[in-house]
């Protein structure tokens, strides 16, 4: 599995994927500085708002792309066959690839997170603990999307998987507000249905800590532990699904 991680990263390094990260860091810095220069006394908030927003979209976009191409490309090009005959279990390949892509996502988060941190510090600083929690939230979000995309490619074509993954992300963000509204005004059946959907659909609202960072709000009690426990369990659930399906998949 170590070799799969190493050579996947080497391949990505040779593809100069990191250039994209640096380019995006530069883009975030440029847009944030421009935005904060146009604002009055809230430069730090504007920087964080734009920075974290762009970072989230970039991470999720990359996670969907990596997820959709990870197994699909190797299968289409038959490279998968050459690797699978050599590993002890099929899951070694899947886990090795997944770890490599998670490391790459983490590298992106680290670089772009540092860019935003320095920009915000230059504009007046922020609560570092909340900022770090926010970054962790973004990482969970993109990990869930990565795992969901890989799972989808084990059932559907790459194009369909891409479209469903985008839907999962946006619906996952809006489900919480929909539930709040329906709980107040909807019928019992509607609430029951939506809660049922919520049970399987990822709740990305839990990982969105941007508002707390921007306004330095106090996090509700147990919010973090609940969010991260949920994130870990959900990732583990998706990973298990992915491994079980991949072990039995007809790879033709």
């Amino acid at each position: 599995m170590k070799s799969i991680v190493y050579y996947t990263l080497l391949e990505l390094h040779r593809e100069r994927v990191y250039l994209f990260t640096f380019l995006m860091g530069f883009f975030i810095a440029l847009v944030s500085l421009l935005g904060s220069s146009l604002s009055y006394q809230v430069g730090q908030m504007v920087t964080l708002d734009i920075g974290l927003g762009v970072l989230t979209l970039l991470m999720v976009g990359q996670a969907i792309y990596f997820g959709v191409t990870m197994v699909g490309e190797d299968l289409a090009y038959k490279t998968l066959y050459m690797v699978l005959q050599r590993v002890k279990k099929r899951r070694d390949y899947l886990l090795g690839k997944t770890i490599a892509l998670l490391l790459l996502l983490f590298f992106n988060l680290l670089v772009l997170g540092l860019v935003i941190y320095f920009l915000a510090s230059y504009e007046g600083g922020m609560k570092i603990d909340l900022y770090l929690f926010s970054l962790m939230g973004i990482f969970f979000e993109s990990t869930i999307i990565l795992f969901a995309s890989v799972n989808l490619t084990l059932y559907f074509s790459r194009t369909i998987s891409l479209m469903i993954a985008i839907c999962i992300y946006f619906i996952g963000h809006s489900l919480h507000s929909a539930l709040e509204i329906i709980e107040k005004k909807g019928s019992f059946l509607e609430v029951f249905f939506l809660k049922g959907v919520f049970f399987v659909w990822p709740d990305f609202h839990l990982f969105n800590l941007k508002q707390y960072v921007l306004y330095e709000q106090f996090l509700p009690e147990n919010f973090l532990s609940r969010a991260f426990a949920y994130g870990l369990c959900y990732c583990f659930f998706l990973l298990c699904l992915m491994v079980i399906r991949f072990e039995k998949k007809q790879l033709d």
């Binding site: 050579y7 080497l10 391949e11 040779r14 090009y77 038959k78 490279t79 066959y81 050459m82």
Partner: peptide, 11 residues
């Protein structure tokens, strides 16, 4: 050896 495999081009 699969038929015409696509190897990792950047290695």
């Amino acid at each position: 050896l699969p038929e015409r495999p696509y190897l990792y081009m950047h290695l």
